[in-house]
């Protein structure tokens, strides 16, 4: 998906704000319309029908902006973390390309979300906060490579959970949802790579996927990042009972969401007090 396509598809050639609102609220409208819409679809839709669709979109555009600004804050954090890491020289030279690639993706996410918020949704993108990656002097990620990798894992796994937690909040816009999903899976790829890299280097025993709520050798402060990942029931189905597969493997097979509040609690540790 490129940005032009996105702009093109999210901003229909509407004549007025109301039509645009309807575009965003289409999904909601269909919940209410049900079968009627299918019959109407065969004929040109009279304007009176369009007018009868509830206008929920102004509020939902604002809510999309809020969600994307939240995502943008996390992307700022990740981008600045990797850029600072690359500048610091803490990363082993053989592994720099991995973190350059991840940095490139996070920067692309920053730019993409900024663009969507500002020029598609006509909102105000949050500017980059000041970060304190030592979390008040507790970590030295830019002096110590194992710490750098540990925090990278923490940020990536948090990012995956954070995006997942917002899927339902953007689902009313197909385009925003699809973009968010397309970022979400990239974060998951990063997470898998960093986790496995740490284990290959003998720093941990974690796998690419999250086993139970295991924090491995991450500092105890990371517990909140993995809390709830031990879940083995989905849509009311206990998958261990269903399949007889061990609890560890079943927990690995599903990633869990974090709420905005939970995520900001984690990210807040790394915000500078000067903000």
């Amino acid at each position: 998906m490129n940005l032009i396509k996105l702009l093109d598809s999210i901003c229909p050639d509407t004549e007025n704000k109301e039509q645009e609102d309807r575009f965003y609220s289409r999904r909601e409208a269909f919940r209410q319309f049900g079968d009627l819409s299918k019959k109407l679809a065969l004929a040109a839709v009279p304007l009176s029908i369009l007018n009868s669709i509830p206008t929920v979109a102004k509020a939902s555009t604002e809510s999309l902006i809020d969600v994307l600004n939240y995502a943008l804050t996390l992307e700022h954090l990740e981008y600045r973390y990797y850029q600072t890491g690359l500048d610091s020289g803490v990363i082993m030279s053989d592994e720099r390309p991995i973190f350059q690639k991840i940095r490139d993706h996070e920067l692309a996410h920053v730019n993409f979300l900024t663009e969507v918020i500002a020029n598609v949704l006509n909102g105000t993108p949050v500017s980059e906060p000041s970060f304190d990656f030592t979390a008040g002097g507790n970590f030295m990620p830019f002096d110590d490579y194992p710490t750098f990798l540990a925090l990278a894992q923490a940020f990536e796994d948090t990012g995956v959970r954070a995006y997942k937690g917002q899927a339902a909040n953007v689902m009313e816009s197909d385009v925003v949802l699809t973009a968010a999903l397309s970022i979400h899976s990239v974060e998951a790829r990063h997470a898998s790579m960093v986790r496995r890299l740490r284990t290959k280097k003998g720093m941990d025993t974690v796998k690419g996927w999250i086993t139970g709520n295991d924090i491995g050798t991450l500092p105890a402060a990371a517990a909140g990042i993995y809390a709830g990942e031990e879940n083995i029931s989905h849509a009311g189905v206990n998958v261990v009972n269903l399949t007889g597969i061990d609890q560890e493997a079943v927990s690995e097979g599903w990633d869990e969401p974090l709420t905005m509040e939970q995520t900001l609690g984690i990210a807040g540790l790394f915000l500078s007090t000067s903000n």
Partner: peptide
């Protein structure tokens, strides 16, 4: 259309992405 099903799908897709990367 269901937010609950979207969440379930989201829980699985990131694991597929972890697999793919590995």
């Amino acid at each position: 259309e269901s937010a609950d099903l979207l969440l379930v799908a989201g829980k699985i897709v990131s694991v597929e992405a972890r697999h793919a990367a590995a």
